[in-house]
Design a protein around this nucleic acid. Sequence first.
RNA 1: GGAGAGAUGGUCGAGUUGGUUUAAGGCACCGGUCUUGAAAACCGGCGUAGGUGUGAGCCUACCGUGAGUUCGAAUCUCACUCUCUCCGCCA
Length: 423
Amino acid sequence: MLDIRAIRNNPEILKEAIEKRNSKFDVEGFLKLDEKRRELLVVVEQMKGKQNADSKLIPQYKKEGKDVSALMNEMKELSDKIKEIDSQVKDIDNEIESELLTIPNIPNAAVPVGMSDADNLEIRKWGEPRKFDFEPKPHWDIGEDLDIIDPTTAAKVTGTRFTFYKGLGARLERALVNFMLDLHTTKHGYTEVFPPFMVHRNSMQGTGQLPKFEEDAFKVANTEYFLIPTAEVPVTNMYREQILDVKNLPIKHAAYSACFRAEAGAAGRDTRGLIRQHQFNKVELVKFTLPEDSYNELEKLTNDAEEVLQLLGLPYRVVRLCTGDLGFSSATTYDLEVWMPSYNRYVEISSCSNFESFQARRAGIRFRRGLNEKPEFVHTLNGSGVAIGRTTACILETYQQPDGTVVIPEILRKYMNDLDVIK
RNA sequence: GGAGAGAUGGUCGAGUUGGUUUAAGGCACCGGUCUUGAAAACCGGCGUAGGUGUGAGCCUACCGUGAGUUCGAAUCUCACUCUCUCCGCCA
């Protein structure tokens, strides 16, 4: 959510941001509404002032034995008028609030202007995609041949875009979770949390999934709960409606969770394999920082995620998302894209974003610089560190051998009983 | 799921025959006086949000959330949420 005063004082910035994002919003109409609200407020607050003052006279007059019926009548009339204007103000407030919730964040000035992912800017590359001297298989064939990934049974039990991991496949998935959590908690200084996998509506609104993108989420029937699309939601909302102690900043959390996404609108895309599932595993990194530190912390967070891929020996590149590809809540996003042999291109495996105060304002996450200072909004950041299912897919493809077996990356072996090959 | 108790500013806590409570008071915290320094004591300050004004300031709202009664609600009514205690069920 943006600061309404900032919009009022500088509407051009918002108009420009909306256009760059290739989005739509009636800024002028919004400002008119805001103006109308303030006009009404001036009137009604003055009336309330009179009401407060006059109502003090009533007990006084009564004590003096005066007749108060005329005054009472007068005040009844005033009260009715106040109620009427109050309800108008309330309607406008609700409208302003719901419009504010649909305005996307303002991209940082360094974000390249563009229409789609084709306009994203490559920042750096790490590693060389492997050259195969045999015909490499996609991970879904490797998984089926080794009997470690089984979407067919999942389709029978649940439906499409779900999978069973079996045997060493399940073990590999679990090894990756442990490896990533260990790396981030011991070497990078994040505190581990294990969050609820369902949250209520306000939390979804706090991080920006609602109200605009409800069709992307799974809602649990007969409850007001949503399955989390990412651990970002529960972990960021841990501190909602709270004033944080500046001494504790930055707060850094690493969280494993299953993630649930309806993937509405993705029909026909990535239908095979682990790339696009309704349920997948992810280790997420979340930070709460001082406003002046957030961009520096974004670099560090991105590096923390990159190290996962480096240690696993998976070639990747870092791109800076352009305005047209940037997520609704984000001011700046780096995507990590890992080389996926079956796709013959880089595929997103992590998304590291600085939301600045956008989520903090929605969720009411603040800090105070000093005891008598005004509370300010923190900056929130998060990034995948990294998506597990896509990592599994990439390992199977990258480390496959001509005989159909898969070499386990060195760093994972201690998480897999020192096994070196899946066969 | 059943029964009961509760929810007031950073924290503790008063206020519930509706009207000088204008949310008292304590603690914590901040500034000052005193002191070699500190403590104590004393004096002053100290919630959030919105509006308005060049400005000191002024006004309005907020006592878990949302409706309602009333000229007037922290206080009365209704619904809901959450917390605690006990019982039941359960991994």
